[in-house]
């Protein structure tokens, strides 16, 4: 019943949904369903609850330091989606818990793993990324990882400041695309403190097996972390020296 487009061979050139054919002026049924399946996966990624226990258990298996678990001031997903300001602040109990940590030495790097807009991305790609990254940070003092529920990028500013870290790395789920519900973002901020601007960060985006692989991302991140600590900055100044297009500073509104 549907009319195929005679240029289907071109579909191998792009992931875009081309040469779909038509049923009347609309899409063939298979194309409608395929789109809606992708949307369903992306929607579920946004609303899925971060499996903190599972992350902690897997982290222990990797032999890492005991993680600290925090929550932002966004009490639930509904609030989180409408109030980005609350997702950038620790709730009272979390702030007190972090303050009570007495780290023997000020860490070079604090790591925050947050759900962001896709818990799916965190479940699938956060630990593989850290597994590849941490050996590359040999010689640096790394704080115990902080796992944050309902967290945005700027939550790392407060976490990093409270822990007295020289630099904070925030790993979180990006706004899921229809073809990338599992995409992770990594943000670096030197001298974290509340009120840092997005232009003062560097970002790696699209970290997932079908995009920038965790292994490739870890190499870029390790380079950036060492460069940021050596030059004592992140943001536009760091980009100018790198020549790697993926290492773009964050100029757009935070996702």
């Amino acid at each position: 019943m549907s009319r195929p487009d005679p240029w289907q061979s071109l579909a191998t050139l792009t992931a875009a949904r081309i040469a779909l054919g038509r049923a009347g002026n609309s899409l063939p049924t298979a194309a409608v369903l395929s789109f809606d399946v992708a949307h369903a996966l992306a929607r579920d990624a946004v609303h899925q609850v971060l499996d903190v226990d599972g992350l902690v258990a897997r982290w222990r298996e990797m032999g890492g330091a005991e993680p600290l678990v925090v929550h932002s001031q966004a009490i639930d997903r509904h609030t989180y989606l409408q109030r980005p300001d609350l997702g950038r602040c620790l709730d009272e109990a979390s702030a007190a818990m972090l303050l009570a940590q007495h780290l023997p030495d000020a860490p070079d790097v604090a790591i925050v793993i947050a759900d962001g807009l896709s818990a799916t991305a965190v479940h699938e790609n956060a630990l593989p990324l850290l597994d590849a990254l941490l050996p590359l940070l040999d010689g640096l003092r790394i704080a115990p990882p902080v796992i944050a529920r309902q967290g945005r990028v700027a939550l790392g500013d407060e976490v990093g400041a409270v822990l007295g870290a020289r630099l904070v790395l925030v790993i979180l789920g990006e706004r899921p695309g229809l073809s990338s519900p599992d995409s992770l973002g990594a943000y670096l901020t030197f001298a974290p403190k509340i009120g840092r601007l997005d232009a003062e960060r560097n970002c790696l985006s699209n970290i997932r097996p079908a995009g920038l692989t965790p292994a490739a991302a870890s190499v870029k991140l390790a380079w950036l972390i060492r460069a940021a600590l050596a030059r004592q900055l992140t943001g536009i100044g760091l980009k100018d020296d790198s020549e790697t297009p993926a290492l773009s500073p964050v100029l757009k509104a935070e996702r």
Binding site: A16, S26, F35, S179
Partner: peptide
């Protein structure tokens, strides 16, 4: 946008159909 799925900007818009 082909199929309504912008694979660069990661959002959905109106399609050729």
């Amino acid at each position: 946008v082909p199929g309504g799925d912008d694979i660069m900007l990661n959002y959905q818009s109106t399609s050729f159909h």
